[in-house]
Design a protein around this nucleic acid. Structure first.
Length: 596
RNA sequence: GGUCCUGUAGCUUAAUGGAUAGAGCACCUGACUACGGAUCAGGAGGUUGGGGGUUCGAGUCUCUCCAGGAUCACCA
């Protein structure tokens, strides 16, 4: 049994025996003892004062006596204010370390047939422009939370809904047709998504120019926007698309394929993937039927102009349109349809949407609507809402050209990783392709860690220069420590040392004990991270562990230790620490190179 | 204006209602015969936006004010 559960149960027994009082073990508050105090686990005794009818110190002392007397793992105790610090035996901690060392996937649970199924939707790009920094946060969070849910024993289906149709897609199609001169990714050497993105920008420029000219001719802004030839052409194109016009559909297909090829490269570079991709062009009509059903059941109302609305004022929200007066779907309607389809395709227990916090309202409404429509999973959908990414010079605005392109960013990071690595010259004996792979791992480690270490729900500041700093609380610092441990382990192995057996009588010193305690809390960290949907918890844990290890590393020699039992123990400790670091980083989608 | 989110050192940030608010960057002082120094030890830097409330105990819960952001489309 875990020591924390054991302590909780024994505290309940103690309360029963000392004061003949019932107390629920889950309400016993315990925590790891702070470093500045003596002890390993701390019981908070304030909640027991009503039961004991005495002061905190008295109560704590009575409990301490009982625990030392009756629990063999508890060696000793001390009381500071209302906190009862328990000293746990070295034998217990040694057993913990041995168990952690022997388990290949320490802290992970394998999913089985009966595991709950979580579907995680993330990325969800538009096919009219390349991915940018905001998408990177989305992709990294989506991938990482999927891994964390898996580690907590869930079966996970990673999904992506591609927004591949609509007026905004037609804009880049229109501009390409008008002025594209048959430019393709092949004949221009441009990445497909970037190429299409350029035409989207060209459209915007053309449109603005036309509007300005029309306004100079005396039209109001609204009139000008409606009459601009480019906008009219785009509208026409959308109508043709919906009417299945062969030429428009072929153009659409061709340009979207360029974009998909480009996205595939970006996803591969980021190391994210999907189990199932949905395309909006396939699903956008499904929600309509559900809305019409809701209408016939009296859940929604039809206005005089034929549009269909949901009245959510009883839920404290507004009126929400579900079908336009021309009968076509809006965003909300499509999401209803997509959700229905997904539940038909998979036995989903929980749906997780990784979508920015600017859509908090949307998902609140979606949840209520699905619930009203009779889907029991509606109210349980989880909107994994994350904050925006801001830059030192302010917000990213695509129109002002202040976006950070995902591909450019990754490439730039790799470049800096290469420069730094070459200055240090530790990889000189490796081949170019090996070096390249390691530089890639470091660059992505830096980027991913920088983004994932921040609480997802907070708006974060991304400073490109600072993210490439490889000191302090950064991915490369953690990767470096891992690589250094591997080096020590390699050297030990070369000299014929094995470290799978430890001496049971070993007396642990303070630094060794701290490190074991840190390692042993990994499974609980993974659970907490899953409960709170926060990869940041795992990220910060990895950093704490690495700091702890570095202090240990500098205080003691490992290979030059003359006492064989101590050497074996420290190698064991190092090997286990590196295993936990690697597993923790894997939950963030970060690889740890064996050397760097 | 309604609703929701955020406010912690100069900057980037951490803290299941628990002990003296913890790190990193930058700044200052030390340690390189190092098993990988991309390191380690130490210093300085805080009225957790302001004020009230609940509690044995509040950065955390609550009320209010201030500041910033998001959202309230027949856009997605």
């Amino acid at each position: 049994m875990n020591i924390d559960l054991l302590i909780k149960n024994e505290v309940v027994n103690a309360l029963n025996s000392l004061y003949s009082a019932e107390f629920e073990s889950k309400n016993v508050q315990i925590q790891m003892t702070r470093k500045e105090f003596e002890g390993d686990w701390t019981v908070v005794v304030f909640p027991f004062l009503k039961i004991s009818k005495s002061g905190p110190e008295q109560t704590a002392n009575a409990l301490g006596e009982y625990l030392v007397e009756n629990v063999k793992e508890v060696l000793n105790y001390n009381v500071v204010k209302g906190f009862l610090n328990l000293v746990i035996s070295d034998a217990y901690w040694l057993a913990v370390l041995e168990e952690a060392f022997s388990q290949a996937n320490y802290g992970f649970n394998d999913s089985v047939e009966t595991s709950p199924v979580s579907m995680v939707e993330y990325s969800s790009p538009n096919t009219n422009k390349p991915l940018h920094l905001g998408h990177i946060r989305n992709n990294l969070l989506g991938f990482s939370i999927s891994e964390i849910l898996k580690a907590n024993g869930n079966k996970v289906v990673k999904t992506n809904i591609v927004n591949d149709r609509g007026i905004h897609i037609c804009k880049s199609m229109y501009a390409w047709q008008l002025d594209g001169k048959n430019e393709t990714p092949e004949n221009s050497g441009k990445k497909g998504d970037h190429l299409v993105g350029e035409y989207y920008v060209k459209f915007d420029k053309l449109y603005k120019k036309e509007v300005a000219e029309l306004m100079a001719g005396g039209l109001t802004k609204e009139e000008a926007e409606a009459k601009a030839p480019s906008m009219q052409g785009t509208r026409e194109m959308l109508l043709k698309w919906e009417a299945n016009d062969k030429e428009v559909r072929e153009l659409w297909q061709m340009m979207n394929n360029w974009v998909y090829a480009g996205f595939d490269v970006t996803y591969k570079n980021l190391g994210v993937d999907f189990d199932k991709i949905y395309y909006e062009s396939d699903t956008y009509t499904i929600g309509r039927d559900e809305v019409l059903r809701g209408l016939s059941e009296g859940l929604f109302t039809r206005h005089d102009d034929n549009s269909v609305w949901a009245n959510l004022e009883a839920d404290g929200l507004d009126q929400k349109i579900l079908l336009r007066s021309d009968g076509t779907s809006v965003y909300m309607t499509q999401d209803i349809g997509t959700a229905k389809l997904r539940y038909q395709d998979y036995p989903i227990n929980q749906m997780v949407y990784v979508v920015g916090n600017e859509q908090n309202y949307h998902f609140k409404v979606l949840s209520i609507l699905l619930d009203k429509l009779g889907f029991e999973w509606g109210k349980d959908l989880y909107h994994f809402s994350y904050g925006m990414v801001e830059l030192p010079q302010g917000k990213m605005k695509s129109r002002e050209g202040t976006v950070v392109d995902a591909d450019d960013l990754v490439e730039g990071m790799i470049d800096v990783a290469r420069q730094t690595s070459e200055e240090l010259g530790k990889l000189d004996e490796y081949s170019d392709s090996e070096k390249k792979e390691i530089h890639r791992m470091i660059a992505l480690g830096a980027l991913k860690y920088f983004i994932l270490k921040v609480d997802p729900k907070k708006t974060m500041m991304f400073n490109p220069e600072e993210s490439i700093d490889f000191n302090g609380n950064t991915g490369p610092f953690i990767q470096y420590t891992y690589a250094r441990i591997q080096s020590v382990l390699r050297k030990a192995q070369e000299s014929g040392l094995t470290w799978d057996k430890m001496d049971a009588d070993l007396q642990m010193n303070h630094k060794e004990l701290e490190l074991i305690k840190r390692i042993s809390s990994f499974p609980e960290i993974v659970k907490e991270s899953g409960r709170n949907y926060s990869p940041a918890i795992v990220a910060n844990y990895c950093y704490e562990l690495v700091k702890e290890y570095n202090q240990f590393y500098h205080e003691f020699t490992i290979l030059n230790e003359t006492d064989l039992a101590r050497k074996t123990f420290r190698l064991n400790l190092s090997a286990t620490a590196s295993k936990v670091i690697r597993n923790g980083m894997a939950l963030l989608g970060i690889e740890c190179p064996e050397r760097m």
